[in-house]
Write a protein that binds this DNA or RNA. Structure first.
Lengths: 210, 210
DNA sequence: GTTAATGGATACTGCTACTATCCATCACAG
DNA sequence: CTGTGATGGATAGTAGCAGTATCCATTAAC
């Protein structure tokens, strides 16, 4: 198929497809002549994945590129694929000052991780976010939320159990990697959306005409 | 305190504070003379809230303004405050085409909501996201994840229960509104970070040297 | 009484994710 | 075999966002 058809089937405008080609998100089509290329089913699938990560997962284009390079390089350990996915959805923070609140939060989070027996690298991107968030909650006088960390962790472990179960339905290594990446990123979108719906419903119940 | 002190205590550069003042995120200080204003504790608290929403919650400046206006307008029903918070973290999507996958996803999500007895307005921002995400998962051949919707919803209801319990520790209506907003937005950041940590730990267990 | 900071206004910047334009082919209908 | 429209590739332009920078006429503080 040529680019117009690819555009029609994916719903992505031709100039945008060209842009993804330029940025190396999408592999070039097979050249049949100096200015004619043909795209196949793989291109369509890849394009859909790109759009899902960008539109639903809010992943920046540069991070999408990272992820796709990871998926394309065979034999990359699954743990690294997950790392890329995590970095894609965790903005790198400029390491805030080590205030009192931050130090206390770091201790609390460290305790939680030990208590749970989690194995977490000390430079995990999510670690900083978690510490920073707990510190912010305390600074904003919302200790009640920060104090529920364990209960949150309980519920969160359910997700990971689900995801592990879900991934193990696949056998092909390439498919596993893709599932892990999509699950990590779109899973978050899914959970966030579900949570908002549950909240809205609860809020309608609890304060019908507050 | 004057602007330099506010900047020092909050860690926000003076030009940025001026920008927030211009944008109406931060109320003007009390003018003591044509070119001298004094800021108080409320300004500092507000500034910290702004930074938390922007840095941790990834809320765009314009949405932060929405939220703060909501918090400032007394007597705004809590349900509306929640609505603003939800809109702040749910990007408005340009309503994709009604493909087959989308329609099927809409049905599945509708069923889920009925089954759970959730009360959700048909134009809730999270609803579109959820439908779109389920549709994307199916298009990307990740049905296994989409099929676990109910299990996800189970775990998600735990969060809302936690948040309701947490909010009811407050009595002052203003504080409740603030808690709801912060809980909604930073709660998501918290959950996402915890989930990534749990994932990393599981992945280290399951595929130590894959 | 000089030096530095302030409030307020206006202009500029860097980044991201596209769009638009151009052009020399090329496919294909008539 | 000729004219019309699409294509690949390159380069340039754009819109929106979140600040930064500069300027200026005061004013605070030593």
């Amino acid at each position: 198929m040529r680019i117009a058809e690819l555009s029609r089937q994916s719903g992505v405008p031709v100039p945008t497809i060209k842009y993804y080609l330029r940025e190396g998100l999408l592999p070039a089509g097979e050249l049949t002549s100096p200015n004619q290329a043909s795209y196949g089913e793989t291109h369509l699938r890849r394009l859909r994945l790109i759009r899902a990560l960008i539109d639903l997962g809010q992943v920046p284009v540069a991070r999408v590129k990272d992820i796709l390079e990871g998926l394309d390089s065979d034999d990359l350990p699954l743990h690294d694929q997950i790392g890329r996915a995590h970095r894609a959805i965790t903005p790198t923070r400029p390491a805030s000052a080590n205030t009192e609140a931050r130090t206390a939060a770091a201790v609390q989070v460290g305790d939680l991780i030990t208590r749970r027996g989690w194995q977490v690298e000390p430079d995990a991107p999510a670690l900083t976010t978690l510490i920073e968030t707990v510190a912010a909650l305390r600074t904003l006088d919302q200790d009640h939320l920060a104090d529920y960390l364990d209960a949150y962790a309980d519920a969160v472990e359910k997700f990971t159990a689900l995801e592990v179960a879900s991934v193990t339905t696949r056998t092909d290594p390439d498919q596993i990697a893709e599932s892990v990446v999509i699950g990590t990123i779109l899973g978050e979108t899914l959970i966030a959306a579900l949570r908002l719906l549950a909240q809205e419903s609860i809020s309608a119940h609890s304060w019908p005409r507050d």
